[in-house]
Write a protein that binds this DNA or RNA. Structure first.
Lengths: 197, 197
DNA sequence: AGGAACATACCGACCAGTATGTATATCGAT
DNA sequence: ATCGATATACATACTGGTCGGTATGTTCCT
């Protein structure tokens, strides 16, 4: 078996276990069972449980963020608000009921680990900053195109959008109900519309 | 020492340990050290770690919610939007920097436990529903008084407000920065204003 | 021959939970 | 009023199990 394959299988198993149980309660044994390898393999590729967690964040979760939000928003367009709404709708659609009950992987890890581990906090912080920056740029671009109201502060608005997104996911996760996600998403869509000219 | 006192000391220590580490990673030994009692006392009052967690939710955290949001909003007034803004501002003011890094106790527990423990989920769900219902009633009242726009759906709006609140707290917690909370809070205040007539 | 890629066996630490002991308060009977 | 009896309110000591981590193989490719 190729080294990259085993490493990837481990990362994938770790991502799912962490997504289900949280990092601290994620069991290495469970990850190894899921991956179908033994502890020797794990510690060959990752120096510690913490290093494994960092890798999940930097490689698996980071990829999700990129494909769902960063890459689509990076495409130049003449209507950033529609672009944002598309991202939101697409993200909502691809969520299965099971995913809703588990919540946003990035937010989960950030909430659990940022108060107790600097390494996690720094990494989640970088990802959030990237996210905010990308949305902020899209809004600025929209302002130049005359599609977004000039009065709004792009950075402040980007923060508010992401906060609302994560809050929306949190409420739906706790309610274990996709209807909550949709209802809350409607609120976001309305808000996004209110930014337009 | 009175029985109620010891129980209360335990609940308080448990609340803080759980707020810092999360429920699953909260150590009973650490709680006992903080409370200054021994395991015998704990298991005299609580049947299990889980029962202790439930009690923290139902007694400690529930009280916080009541004094910060439910009771103030239950007072009849002629301007619910100002009332909501006051709640938000007061809640923000009383948060110390340390509290921000720890996040909202209710949201923390809900996020961590609702996917893996029905008992926690049911209890957090009840509290969120109470919260939503209280805000929704206030908005309805505002509509009757002509202070809140008739077009908005009170329930949907209440959900959006709470989601935004929790998202705001989450972003500030991860950023470990009160400025983020204030900036995000400004977004909420603007949104609340937009609900008025 | 030597290193990369794993597997197996084992370790001390910590965990939630339990069994047992003990001091004190309460209370009915005398 | 006082003396057991019983229950309450804890403290102490211990248990089995799980945890992350490590030390030591073993296999295979170069």
């Amino acid at each position: 078996m190729q080294p990259d394959t085993t490493r990837q299988v481990l990362l994938n198993a770790a991502f799912h276990e962490i997504h289900h149980k949280g990092f601290q309660s994620a069991s290495l044994t469970a990850i190894l069972d899921k991956a179908g390898v033994t502890k020797g393999a794990l510690y060959h590729y990752f120096g510690s449980k913490r290093a494994l967690g960092y890798a999940v964040l930097e490689e698996v979760i980071s990829d999700h963020l990129r494909t769902l939000w960063l890459d689509p928003l990076a495409e130049t367009t003449d209507d950033p608000i529609t672009q944002l709404k598309d991202c939101l709708i697409k993200a909502g659609e691809q969520l299965k009921d099971r995913d809703i009950r588990l919540g946003c992987p990035l937010n989960n890890l950030a909430q659990e680990m940022s108060p107790i581990d600097q390494g996690f906090r720094e990494r989640t912080d970088v990802m959030y900053k990237l996210w905010l920056q990308t949305i902020s740029s899209a809004l600025q671009n929209g302002q130049q195109l005359g599609k977004v109201r000039k009065e709004i502060d792009p950075e402040e608005t980007a923060l508010f959008i992401v906060a609302t997104l994560e809050g929306c996911m949190s409420m739906a996760k706790n309610a274990q109900d996709k209807a909550v996600l949709l209802q809350c998403g409607k609120g976001i869509l309305n808000y996004l519309d209110s930014l337009g000219t």
